[in-house]
Simulated scan of single mutants.
Amino acid sequence: MATVRSLLYTSYTDIGLLWLRLAGSFILFQVHGWPKVIHYSEELTRIEDPFGTGPAFPLLTAIFAEVVCPLFIAAGLLTRLACLPVIGVLLVAMVAVHPEWSIAQGQFGWLLLTVFVGIALCGPGRWSVDATMVGKPAPSRSPARP
C-alpha cells in the first residue's frame, strides 16, 4: 500500500508541475511575449527603460524572457535555468518599473512570478526533456506517517 500511495503522490506532483509549466508558459508567451514580437516597432516607443540603457535592450530582454524561455520551460528543457530570465524580468517590472502598483493592480505579474519561482524551486518534474536527458528515475517518496 505504501508503494502505491508513493507512486500516486509522485504522479500527481508530476502532473501538477507539467500543468504549471504548460499553463504558465502559454499565458506568459501569449499575453506578453508574442505581442512584443509582432508589434516590435510600436513596443520600442512605449517600453519603460528603468536603467537608462535605451529601449532596445529592455525590449529584447523581455522578448527573450517571454518568448524563448517559456518554450524551454514548457518543454522542460533547461527548466530551472530558463526560469531565471523570466523571474528577473518580472521582478524588474514589479519592483523597478511599477513600484507604485498595489498588489491588486499588479496581481497578474505577482502571480506569474509565483508560478515561475515555484517551477524554478521544484524543477520540471518527471514529464520533461530534462528528466529524459538525465535518465534518472524520479526519487521515491516515503508516505507521510500518521
Rank of each mutant, 00 (worst) to 15 (best):
P70F: 07
Q105Y: 02
M133R: 13
G118Y: 01
C122Y: 08
T53C: 02
L28E: 01
M94L: 15
V86Q: 12
L22W: 06
L113G: 06
R46T: 14
T61N: 11
R145T: 13
H39L: 13
H39C: 02
G125K: 02
F51M: 09
L81F: 13
G125I: 04
V31H: 09
R46Y: 07
R80F: 06
A74P: 10
P124W: 00
P35H: 10
L84W: 09
R21S: 08
L77C: 10
G125E: 08
T79P: 01
I15G: 01
C69M: 14
F51E: 05
I47H: 06
L112C: 11
A96S: 15
W101I: 00
A82G: 03
L71F: 09
V95H: 04
P85A: 05
K36A: 02
L77N: 05
F29E: 08
Y40V: 03
C69I: 10
C122L: 13
W34N: 05
P146M: 12
G33H: 03
H32R: 10
S11I: 11
S25G: 15
A65Y: 07
R80S: 05
D130P: 06
V86W: 03
F108A: 15
W127K: 01
T53R: 12
V95G: 00
G106P: 09
T53N: 10
A82M: 07
G52C: 04
W34V: 10
R126W: 14
A144N: 09
I73H: 05
V117I: 14
L112E: 11
A144E: 04
L91C: 13
F51W: 15
S11P: 01
S142C: 00
I27C: 07
R145S: 14
V89C: 02
P58A: 06
V89L: 03
K36N: 07
V37G: 06
L84N: 00
S128V: 06
P58G: 05
S140P: 00
